[in-house]
Design a protein around this nucleic acid. Structure first.
Lengths: 129, 129
DNA sequence: TATAGCGCTATACTCTTGTATAGCGGTTAC
DNA sequence: GTAACCGCTATACAAGAGTATAGCGCTATA
């Protein structure tokens, strides 16, 4: 491991701690990752099921985001040779363990809102409208 | 609070839990937020100090990101009427408490890498090169 | 035969993020 | 006076993320 402290690594944009934070950020990044992961935390789902469950997502984005998540080891894609083919998406162990991370983020977000209300009425630019 | 469960809120892109996660995501979002916050976790800093500490950031981006952070209650900007003016940026209570969140993200990231190595050699698209 | 569902892909566009480069008005040091 | 530091802003551009819309090959149902 590097001699730099954790915080020094952060400000220097280098080191395994920063890599780790950024892996996490990257996995959750983009408008649709959270809804997809949230939906899959309930259990495996098929493409059309996800499309129906997640309001306003286009098949193009769903396909792209699922590919991202698969490539980064967050979901598995299983094709069954039924006729017509069936495809199922399921969270990996890593994917499921994101729940803990999300819970901490919820906690921080709620606390921050509590502190922040009274100073400003709303947070700028919330992703979900 | 909504009748929807936490997870239902996530997949539906609605509800206070999702708002909370997204506040958190939004605060950390962008290429330079993490280095800036990381740097400020050491204590207050002036504009040029940050510019020097964070490799390759342009004043334009530093200015913009600091403004974002200020508007969202993560840093305070204090102007001292010295000659010439001195400007100091400092983390708010919310800003400092992000440390906990970052630690959980580090933890998940490291675990994920451990699990993932052996399946693929590297994670796609790490933000910091 | 026609319609609908499945699991997508293709094309083309816009909108947001980030980069590159230059410069401003002020002050201090040589 | 001229060079350098401070705390930025302006302009122009490039790249990436997200949207809109259409359609593919397949099958099951009416």
């Amino acid at each position: 491991m590097s001699r730099l402290s954790k915080l020094e690594q952060v400000k220097n944009c280098s080191g395994e701690f920063v890599l780790a934070v950024n892996d996490t950020m990257n996995v959750l990044n983009g408008k649709w990752k959270l809804p997809i992961i949230g939906s899959l935390l309930y259990g495996k789902k098929r493409f059309k099921e996800l499309e129906r469950e997640i309001p306003k997502i286009t098949p193009r984005m769903l396909s792209k985001e699922l590919k991202d998540l698969e490539v980064n080891g967050i979901v598995t894609r299983t094709v069954y040779a039924s006729i017509p083919v069936t495809v199922e998406y399921e969270l990996t162990k890593s994917g499921n363990s994101l729940k803990t991370v999300l819970e901490v983020m919820v906690e921080w977000g709620l606390q921050h809102r509590k502190r922040f209300i009274g100073k400003r009425r709303r947070l700028e630019k919330t992703l979900w409208r």
